[in-house]
């Protein structure tokens, strides 16, 4: 599987994503600077975690209009896989590739810990390697992870099985305990927790491995 990681000024999980992708897929991803306008032809694009543009204006707002995003949208429109992790999820909502918004955590605290995560849908390209309702342990590290959408959008997401991950213990006030959602077509997923940080037992677990290996098998 070929992949690419978009690097924004202030991304800080781009290297973690690259290490995870290389370890699991066997191929190092292309690292693509946000000012580039062309994406190499790849199966998966990752928008990594971090604090792109210092979270100016709103988390992810500036990155959503970076030059590379037109190519990222075209990649998704072609049905290829796109995942936004943490800040990347914020970018996906700001770019209107996923519905809703990620607001300041309800407790106002930056939350940095490993949380239990429930796999709410195991039929997506990203989660076929998990079992539905299984609980995995994945770290979160964010200040703005409080998922908000209006009632009609929440109803649609629930009705269409598009809530993919839910918090076992809600760390941020997210509505419906939402930790990750997917688009209708099933190729664009955003989540606040960091699967790329749990791909090595030396670093606290391997619960993130099936996330990437599922995509690899889907390709």
């Amino acid at each position: 599987m070929k992949s690419a990681v978009i690097v924004f000024p202030g991304s800080n999980c781009d290297r973690d994503a690259a290490v995870a992708l290389e370890r699991i897929t066997g191929n190092a991803p292309h690292m693509v600077w946000h000012k580039d306008t062309d994406l190499p032809e790849v199966d998966l694009v990752v928008l990594p975690g971090g604090f792109s543009f210092g979270d100016y204006l709103r988390s992810g707002a500036m990155s959503a209009s970076s030059p590379i995003m037109a190519a990222v949208k075209a990649h998704a429109d072609a049905g290829r896989y796109l995942v936004g992790i943490c800040n990347g999820f914020q970018v996906l909502t700001e770019a209107h590739l996923l519905p809703g918004a990620l607001m300041r955590n309800a407790g106002l605290n930056f939350v940095c810990r490993t949380v239990p995560l429930i796999v709410a849908n195991d039929e997506t390209a990203f989660t076929r390697g998990y079992k539905k309702d299984s609980i995995i342990k994945v770290p979160v590290a964010h200040h703005d992870g409080n998922y908000f959408a209006d009632d009609a959008t929440l109803e649609m997401l629930e009705g269409e099985g598009r809530v993919v991950f839910r918090y076992g213990e809600n760390p941020n006030g997210s509505l419906h305990d939402i930790a990750g959602i997917i688009n209708k077509r099933g190729n664009v997923l955003g989540l606040m927790p960091h699967p790329e940080r749990v791909v090595d037992p030396m670093l606290g677990g391997e619960d993130g491995v099936p996330f990437f290996s599922s995509v690899m098998e889907a390709v």
């Binding site: 204006l57 709103r58 707002a61 209009s65 909502t93 809703g100 918004a101 607001m103 908000f148």
Partner: peptide, 9 residues
């Protein structure tokens, strides 16, 4: 609409 506000919230 495009940048200054997020009209979802």
């Amino acid at each position: 609409e495009k940048l200054l506000a997020n009209t979802v919230i």
